[in-house]
Amino acid sequence: MAAHNTVATSNARKQVAAGGWLWGAVRRNGAGYLFLAPWLIGFFCLTLGPALVSLYLSFTNYDLLTTPEFVGMQNYVRMATADPKFIASIRVTLLYVALSVPLKLAFALAVAMVLNRGMRGLPFYRAIFYLPSLLGTSVAIAVLWRQLFAADGMVNSLLAQFGVEGPSWISNPNYSLYTLVVLSVWQFGSPMIIFLAGLRQIPVDMYEAASLDGASPARQFFRITLPLLSPVIFFNVVIQTIEAFKAFTPAFIISGGSGGPINSTLFYTLYLYQEAFSYFRMGYASALAWVLVVLIAVFTAFSFLTTKYWVHYDD
């Protein structure tokens, strides 16, 4: 009897303890999770859930109307072996990334170095140079670019004054992509501002010491500026490359949504858009999206792996 009682009380105590533990956990974590709730809902319903569904869809044929039909690796196999447009879009995108990112960053760094060290009028110049970045991806700027490089556009009428007859840049597959590269370089402002902030961190006395020791400006640039700025350069390279992979609007507007002429401006995202929303091949488009994720992940991982060879962290 006594034994039974003690068991009962210890059970009750356990229950109270468990209830207390639960109550304590709610008290300790409740507020945190309440504030976190918007993001948690968004993360599961709008990010993680859809990402997993699109991974599944990438192994199916799906046209939005009938149920998805599982086809295994077929979409990926088709991409790799039987889709010239996919290959074209990869080629265009990689070329765009490889040209626009280094040019834009080199320009941004050069201008930042000219602007550096509190010269008069700095806020004015900085604002002017930054403006194109801000207007960047709007349709209006793409419209402007279309007309700048049109057969009878501004660039050609400038060239005509020097007696040069320019081609129709936009509708010539040999040049169309380069007009988009120029557009991207024109928007060098935001990486320039990041470079300016980075340059400001480099102590002035390092340059003073170096010039007293007779180091040339070039030598100072390669021995002081570049190494000390390398974390900022790294950051800009990663961010700008990811952005370049995702570029869409200018190519869409300039080519009228076609990626033409002859696929010369068929950015990867534009091809993905066409597959999904012009041909309603949702399964194939999902596979394209996952290939994009892998491309970006591989690039990012690769950049991080190379940091130990060229990025100088000041500890």
Binding site: G32, T269, A276, A285, A289, W290, L292, I296, T300
Partner: peptide, 30 residues
Amino acid sequence: LKFSGQKFWFALMLGTLMLPYHVTLIPQYV
């Protein structure tokens, strides 16, 4: 605030910074 799992969720949140929106595009549309 302090709550359990904070670091885990924060890391996940940072992870989504790099994720291109194309990967959620089609299921969201559906």
